[in-house]
């Protein structure tokens, strides 16, 4: 019997366009599989909790530092402009709006993309090239559910939590900066903050963070899970996880800005 003919079909459009369309198809298949696997039992509760700890608790020092510094720097940079109009009393309002609406979710997600996204990409990619994912599969464990679903859920749950924490720490940094040059009590600072921010601000911030978290987890898992080319692929997967998720976070921020703006105008 003759061997079957190998798959050397001519490209439908051009090789590059075919590759792009095929990649898009693979991405959407991967996302579709996530939504299918997330609802089907068995549920990997322990692994999800472990990943939440990895994503959340282990990111706390970095998020604390960046959030605190962001609050101080933003307050410090805004003061000269406001003081020209004698409006330095608006600093708490300005900083809280900036932190809640944009800087908090964005800074947290970019830090998470760098720390968590690259870690997920490198870890899964390394597991792929050393056949650990195959080993899981042959021991009758669904590696997609164990590795991908747990990590994507962890980033989706924990990045909004980290964002709220980063905003709180940023506001603390801002208060310390304000109180170092003006006679402001913590109570009046907090009161000013909560008088300024609205439910829509917080709600949109949480929803954005959920989307950013999902994106970071999904990109890291996709790059790592589908990695190839040996150890070279591990570096590429880690790098692609960071670059792609950062790019997508900015695109999503832009879209969210338009959507929330439209809701505000209604």
């Amino acid at each position: 019997m003759n061997p079957p003919s190998p798959t050397t079909e001519r490209p439908l459009l051009s090789k590059r366009l075919d590759d792009i369309l095929l990649s898009l198809y693979n991405v959407f298949t991967f996302i579709g599989r996530f939504f299918r696997e997330v609802v089907l039992p068995p549920y990997e509760g322990r692994e999800i909790i472990r990943q939440c700890y990895e994503v959340g608790v282990r990111s706390l020092p970095l998020i604390s530092l960046t959030g605190f510094i962001t609050g101080i720097v933003f307050t410090n940079q805004s003061r000269p402009s406001l003081s020209q109009f004698g409006a330095t009393s608006w600093l708490p309002s300005l900083v809280s709006i900036a932190l809640v609406r944009a800087i908090g979710p964005l800074v947290t997600s970019l830090i998470a993309a760098g720390r968590v996204g690259s870690n997920i990409g490198a870890e899964l990619s390394s597991m792929r090239v050393t056949e650990q994912i195959d080993a899981m599969e042959v021991s009758a464990t669904n590696p997609f559910k164990f590795l991908v679903v747990s990590r994507v859920l962890a980033t989706t749950f924990m990045i909004p939590v980290l964002t709220m924490y980063a905003i709180a720490v940023g506001l603390l940094g801002s208060f310390l900066n304000v109180s170092s040059s003006e006679a402001t009590s913590l109570q009046s600072f907090i009161s000013e903050v909560f008088n300024t921010i609205t439910f829509l601000d917080i709600f949109s911030s949480v929803i954005k963070s959920v989307v950013f978290g999902f994106t970071i987890g999904m990109v890291g898992c996709y790059q790592g899970y589908n990695s190839s080319k040996g150890t070279e692929g591990v570096g590429k997967a880690a790098n692609a996880s960071v670059v792609t998720s950062m790019f997508l976070v900015f695109v999503e921020e832009l879209l969210a800005l338009q959507i929330v703006g439209a809701i505000r105008d209604m």
């Binding site: 597991m127 056949e131 650990q132 195959d134 080993a135 021991s139 009758a140």
Partner: peptide, 28 residues
């Protein structure tokens, strides 16, 4: 179900790096 009856020893052992030996054996 079939895979549970067939053991596969990989070329590079494919031990789970993030787990101890005990956890590796407990896993399946």
């Amino acid at each position: 179900k079939l895979r549970l009856k067939v053991g596969f020893s990989f070329q590079n052992s494919a031990l789970y790096d993030s787990m101890t030996v005990r956890e590796n054996l407990e896993f399946p």
